[in-house]
């Protein structure tokens, strides 16, 4: 597994720092800021994967990397691994449009899967609704909240390509637990079936979606949204 440290054309290095799907506490932010001032970092760039790229002198990169664990931050893995998870602001505290706790799920997925080996880089995006601020159709594994603890799962998308491809819906209205089970299944199939360096979407195009579909028992846990909190509220007081 590679790490997110890249030599730049200006002679400096860029260190890719991962937070909890881009969420930082004020303490983390100020702690990182103090460290970066101490190390005379040149610039910090927020990335499309919700990580931070710190550009600084090469001889100071190691000191930054060593300081990350104390700030509850992680050096980004790189290469053919599961990358930092992109999750939107979708949770009760941060987005009124969110239909479920997407951010919380994204953070937990990142904790569990970040850096795991895969045949090709594997990107996960978790959105709180179908507005899809984190482009779940353009991820290898996209998750969209469609209710409280109810998610749709899309696989095989990729956006960063001259020939981008939208993913395909493989599970509808499944629970959080089923999202994990489907992800494990897809990763297992991807590792078993993909050619070296082949993106999941390309493997699906070559082999067909069926080769990656989760078994029924994993996705037949569809949640009936009729039985939701609003229905109880609507019928209350009558």
């Amino acid at each position: 597994m590679g790490t997110g440290v890249f030599r730049q054309r200006n002679g400096m290095v860029a260190v890719d720092v991962v937070a909890a799907c881009g969420v930082l506490t004020p303490g983390q932010l100020s702690g990182l800021s103090r460290k970066l001032e101490e190390l005379e970092a040149f610039r910090v760039k927020l990335t499309s994967r919700q990580t931070m790229v710190v550009v600084l002198a090469e001889e100071k990169a190691q000191a930054l990397i060593e300081a990350l664990p104390a700030l509850d931050l992680v050096l980004s893995p790189y290469g053919d691994v599961i990358r930092a998870v992109k999750a939107c602001a979708g949770n009760a505290a941060l987005c009124p449009r969110s239909t479920g706790e997407a951010l919380d799920l994204g953070i937990e997925l990142q904790k569990k899967y970040l850096g795991r080996q895969a045949p090709k880089d594997f990107k996960i995006a978790v959105a709180g609704c179908y507005r899809g601020c984190v482009d779940p159709h353009c991820a290898d594994f996209g998750v969209v909240a469609v209710g409280k603890d109810v998610f749709d799962v899309i696989i095989g998308g990729y956006g960063g390509s001259a020939k981008p491809l939208h993913g395909k819906l493989i599970a509808r209205k499944v629970t959080t637990g089923a999202v994990y089970a489907v992800l494990d299944h897809v990763l297992e199939r991807f590792s078993a079936l993909a050619q070296p360096g082949e993106k999941l979407g390309r493997a699906i195009s070559r082999l067909g979606l069926g080769a990656f579909m989760p078994p029924d028992e994993l996705v037949n846990c569809s949640v009936e949204t009729d039985n939701n909190e609003f229905k109880k509220f609507l019928l209350s007081g009558q």
């Binding site: 009760a92 009124p96 449009r97 969110s98 239909t99 479920g100 609704c129 469609v146 209710g147 409280k148 109810v150 949204t225 009729d226 939701n228 609003f230 229905k231 509220f233 609507l234």
Partner: peptide, 17 residues
């Protein structure tokens, strides 16, 4: 009322009710 209480602008499944 529900939306105001929950601070949400989408109520999944409500259209069916």
């Amino acid at each position: 009322n529900f939306a105001a209480q929950k601070g949400m602008l989408d109520i999944p499944g409500a259209a069916g009710l």
